[in-house]
Amino acid sequence: MAINKEGNVYTIGFAFVLVVVVGTILSLLSVGLKPIQLKNQEIKKKIDILSAILSPEEMNKVTRKNAEEKFEKYIDLEKSVVLDYKGNIKEGIDPFQVDIRAEHRDKTLSIEDKNFPLFVGEKDGETVYVIPIVGKGLWGPIWGYISVGEDMKTIIGASFGHKGETPGLGAEITQPFFVKRWYGEKIVFPDGSPAKFEIVKDGSGKEPYKVDGITGGTITSVGVQEMVNRGIKPYVAYFKKIKK
């Protein structure tokens, strides 16, 4: 029996079979690979946190293989805490498991319910605090980690990440030359209030509380500015409390 290949029955049947086959392959693949992908994400998060503490040169020695071991060496999850937006400690939450990107995306979540994890570690005998931050760039989310030294003021390291900023322009926020511009800045004004950083275009980034932006990546740079200024607030409040 010859099948009419242009008939409705054949066309619908073909579409049906195609969708079932493709759907099955894709869902099997997705479910099967999920555990490996989650593990990769966890390692990536550890690498991101580490790169806020270690210099780019030291980071060259960190690979996906030894990231977990290095993470345990520098970060003490026992001492790490989760804060609320006013800088008070929230008990019973694992700081590493808090997904601030998901919380930032969730528009139904009020600021009172948001969690602000603070990672505490040690480098060269000094305590370091790693502050995770999240914001938005030109095309999608951007995020980062800022680490401050034992004085709870001076930025000693940072790392930035993005989902899909323009390569060569906004995406340059991950590059050492941009990250290093944040080193030495203070996260508090002399009067103790949270600092307000300014991304500048005129090359005056050497001045305190000013950071040079990236040519052609203005919107992403401004996104970083907004993310840092908003992100440090709960932590500045917390540092003030524990210093007393």
Partner: peptide, 12 residues
């Protein structure tokens, strides 16, 4: 999508 899923798992 297949390429992307495989890369995510084995070549992150």
């Amino acid at each position: 999508i297949i390429v992307n899923e495989i890369l995510k798992a084995f070549m992150p």
